[in-house]
């Protein structure tokens, strides 16, 4: 599915990811955990092709294609979806126009209004989301939870095969977290080959979306890999104790 091979990533001359490697197989769920500022969100941006992040060597392969030089929209159309930590507010651009344009781009043809509204309203209902938000300016005046639900709404409409959830749990209350996480779980169940990369510094979301692998990121590189239990250990002891104790790899992941 996705293979990141030995990448070094710089932002404004500062190195953020160092000799970073990660392999994500079809249908698997990986988690990148780590305290603030260690490069977690950078990873999501690099996979999606944000050109503010300079990739100096290495490559990113998705479904056997080198996507390193592909534009952001090309990556999306291949099936990669990034649910952003802080979805942008864009005044004047209606959510409806945005969603319909995105759907049409993915399908390669104009989506009919009836089909679009039908899909949109069904997805909004699943997410317990106010349907009027579809007609408002994109994310403008949305609460933190509504913005995150809008990201998951996009996910449900665009039907990706690889999902990156960047700090999805931030800004969500307990009930909203449960709703969005259950929607993602349902999507995963309906599309078992879909892979998920969860980026988080808390383990709350993992109560609902159980990971196959948990990686701990520190100073731009993965320093520890394990199973779900590693996330629970971090929750109990904190990053310093877990990272500082040992660098041995737990579980059977052989990426490092």
């Amino acid at each position: 599915m996705l293979s990141i091979k030995n990448i070094n990533v710089f932002v404004e001359g500062k190195q953020v990811l160092k000799n970073f490697n990660l392999d994500i197989e079809d249908g698997s769920i990986h988690v990148i955990m780590g305290p603030n500022g260690v490069g977690k969100s950078t990873l999501s941006r690099v996979i999606m092709g944000d050109n503010h992040y300079v990739l100096k060597n290495g490559e990113i392969v998705f479904d056997n294609q080198d996507i390193t030089k592909m534009t952001t929209d090309q990556r999306s159309k291949l099936g990669i979806f990034l649910a952003m930590q802080s979805p942008l507010e864009i005044d004047g651009v209606s959510n409806q126009d945005f969603l319909r344009t995105a759907m049409s781009s993915h399908l390669g043809k104009q989506v009919g209004l009836y089909e679009f509204i039908k899909n949109c309203e069904a997805a909004a209902e699943d997410l317990k989301m106010d349907k009027n938000l579809i007609h408002r300016s994109l994310n403008v005046g949305f609460s933190g939870g509504e913005k995150k639900k809008n990201e998951v709404l996009q996910l449900k409409l665009l039907k990706p095969s690889f999902i990156i959830l960047d700090e999805l749990d931030s800004g969500l209350d307990v009930d909203s977290l449960k709703t969005v996480a259950l929607n993602i779980s349902k999507y995963k169940k309906d599309n078992p080959n879909t892979s998920i990369l969860i980026i988080t510094h808390l383990s709350n979301i993992l109560e609902y979306i159980k990971p196959d692998y948990v990686h701990v990121l520190s100073n731009g590189t993965i320093v520890k890999t394990g199973r779900y239990e590693l996330a629970k250990e971090i929750e109990k002891k904190g990053y310093n104790e877990v990272i500082g104790k040992t660098n041995i790899i737990i579980g059977d992941d052989d990426n490092e």
Binding site: M48, T72, M84, I90
Partner: peptide, 15 residues
């Protein structure tokens, strides 16, 4: 950031 956000959902630069 706005351009990246829209393109990250599959919308071409022109659109």
């Amino acid at each position: 950031d706005q351009i990246f956000y829209l393109m990250s959902k599959g919308i071409s630069y022109k659109d």
